[in-house]
Amino acid sequence: MSQRSTGMGLINWHAIVAIYRFEMARTWRTPMQSILSPVISTSLYFVVFGAAIGSRMQSIDGVPYGAFIVPGLIMLSLLTQSIANASFAIYFPKFTGTIYELLSAPVAWWEAVAAYVGAAATKSIILGLIILATATLFVPLRIEHPVFMLLFLVLTATTFSLFGFIIGIWADGFEKLQVVPLLIVTPLAFLGGSFYSIEMLPPFWRVVTLFNPVVYLISGFRWSFYGVADVGVAVSLGMTMVFLAACIGAVAWIFRTGYRLKN
């Protein structure tokens, strides 16, 4: 009865839409930073690794090196941009104090998460597709499993936006906001097989690499392009889901306890 008296139903859709729109509008206000700069940096990777170095590299698993690195590069941007978008989206209102309004609104935690994470993931998916389009200018591409490609794109963007959201809540200063992406995520992403097949590593490092969750994302994503993978696609998908579930669990815990959001 109380739910009905608010005229809101079980889900506060208006709030989800309002937050989502607000966040998307923020992106279009800074198109240079949001879209152009990742596109430029990815293009540089293509020039350096694809054209300059790639011309001297053998093809890997029958895929020319320039094309081989495309899925890895997209994943790299997807990871870093998802984290950056989502962590900033929730950190900034905390920092300026405008979060008071969200805390005082009739919004369930999962509605807020859905809206913020949804917006952050949308942005990085759009970005991933733009980079994909950019890549076709440099190398011939084929996508064998487009549905799986989109699935990996969406799952990864969602998972890492959630992860970024958690960082944004945990961070109580700009330094902490930077430190996790810089010290943990970027190394993991670079060592996750963006630029090489883990088959190329010595056996010991190959085993170590298997503890890097990013390996599974890149491997699965690359499989959706070329049908070849370092690890089985089912394992890749499974690991992505596990990480997604872990992030959802952590966010739920944060909001249940009011951790770092309320005194």
Binding site: T6, G7, M8, N12, H14, A15, V17, A18, I19, R21, F22, A25, R26, R29, T96, G97, T98, Y100, E101, L102, S104, A105, P106, V107
Partner: peptide, 27 residues
């Protein structure tokens, strides 16, 4: 709630920030 501190967005317009609040409160 009108809070004690002047905590507002910076880059949004008056219209959009006020409309945003209405949506946030489920209207």
């Amino acid at each position: 709630l009108v809070p004690q501190e002047l905590t507002t967005d910076a880059f949004e317009t008056v219209w959009s920030t006020v409309s945003f609040s209405r949506g946030l409160f489920g209207k």
